[in-house]
C-alpha cells in the first residue's frame, strides 16, 4: 500500500501565542515546534498499516527549511521518504494545490492528514485535496481499517459517530483514537538521517485570501472567588 501523510510544523500545544511586525508575523521566540498533533495520529496509523500489510510511507510538508527537523522526526517515527515543498504556507488553497500536484500521478492508495492544523485550524486542506483529485475525503476520522481496496472508518459527528465505507484511493482527516502517538526510537532516529528528503519548488502561487493582521483576544478580568459554603451566591 502506498501511503502519503501530510504533516504540519506547528507551535507546541503549550506555547504562548504572540505576534511581531505590526501583528503581521507569528513570534517564534522561545517556541518549540512539533508535528501537528492530529498529523501525528495520521502518521501513527500509517505506520501501523504499513506494519500490517507492507508498502511505503511518504511524508509531505509545505514549509520553509526550518521545518526539516520536524520532517526528520516523522522519518524517525517510520516514514520512508519525505517531500518538502519549499514555500511558506500562506493559505489553505495554496497548500492544497501543492499537495494535489504532488499526489496526482503518484498512485497513493491513502492520503492521511490531520483533522485540522493547530495553527490555522482550518479543517480545510483534506477536503480541498480530495476535490482537486476527484477522490473521496472523509473527516474527522476516529478509526480506519483497510480490507483489500475497501476502507472502513468511523467518523465523529455531533453527539456520536457514524461508520463510513469507501474504496481507495481517498483522503482522510484523522484524529484520536485512530492510533497511539509513536515516539521515535534510537534506530529510527539514526536511520532518519539518511532517508531521502526531497525539496521541490511550489507549482503555483495562487491564494484565495490574504492576511490583514493578527489579533489577540482581550485579557480576561480577574476571577471572583466564592466561598465554598456560600455557593448560593453563584446562583444570584
Amino acid at each position: 500500500m502506498k501511503l502519503l501523510v501530510c504533516i504540519t510544523h506547528v507551535p507546541d500545544t503549550t506555547s504562548k501565542i504572540s505576534f511581531t511586525d505590526d501583528d503581521q508575523k507569528f513570534d517564534q521566540t522561545g517556541v518549540q515546534f512539533i508535528i501537528g498533533p492530529y498529523d501525528d495520529y495520521a502518521l501513527a496509523r500509517a505506520v501501523e498499516l504499513k506494519e500490517q500489510s507492507g508498502g511505503s510511507i511518504t511524508v509531505l510538508n509545505v514549509g520553509g527549511s526550518e521545518t526539516e527537523p520536524t520532517i526528520r522526526k516523522a522519518l524517525a517515527i517510520g516514514a520512508d521518504e519525505a517531500v518538502r515543498v519549499n514555500a511558506d504556507p500562506t493559505d489553505s488553497l495554496f497548500v492544497a494545490k501543492q499537495i494535489a500536484e504532488h499526489a496526482k500521478d503518484s498512485g497513493y492508495d491513502l492520503i492521511l492528514m490531520g483533522r485540522e492544523s493547530i495553527d490555522f485550524n482550518g479543517g480545510m486542506v483534506h477536503g480541498m485535496v480530495g476535490e482537486m483529485l476527484g477522490i473521496p475525503s472523509v473527516s474527522p476520522v476516529m478509526t480506519l481499517d483497510v480490507d483489500g481496496d475497501s476502507v472502513k472508518m468511523s467518523r465523529e459527528i455531533e453527539g456520536g459517530k457514524e461508520v463510513v465505507e469507501a474504496k481507495m484511493p481517498l483522503v482522510a482527516g484523522c484524529q484520536e483514537p485512530i492510533a497511539e502517538w509513536k515516539i521515535p526510537n534510537m534506530r529510527g532516529i539514526m536511520s532518519a538521517r539518511t532517508k531521502p528528503l526531497n525539496v521541490v519548488e511550489p507549482v503555483s502561487d495562487e491564494v484565495s485570501s490574504t492576511l490583514e493582521k493578527y489579533e489577540l483576544p482581550p485579557a480576561k478580568g480577574a476571577v471572583k472567588m466564592i466561598d465554598a459554603d456560600k455557593v448560593s451566591e453563584l446562583v444570584d
Partner: peptide, 24 residues
C-alpha cells in the same frame, strides 16, 4: 455553520466554485 458535516463539505464546494474558503 462549522460542524462535523459543514466544514468538510465547505472545502469541496469552495474548490468546485473556485471560491475563497474561510472557516471558524
Amino acid at each position: 455553520a462549522n460542524s462535523s458535516l459543514g466544514t468538510p463539505v465547505s472545502a469541496r464546494v469552495a474548490i468546485k466554485q473556485d471560491a475563497s474558503l474561510v472557516t471558524n
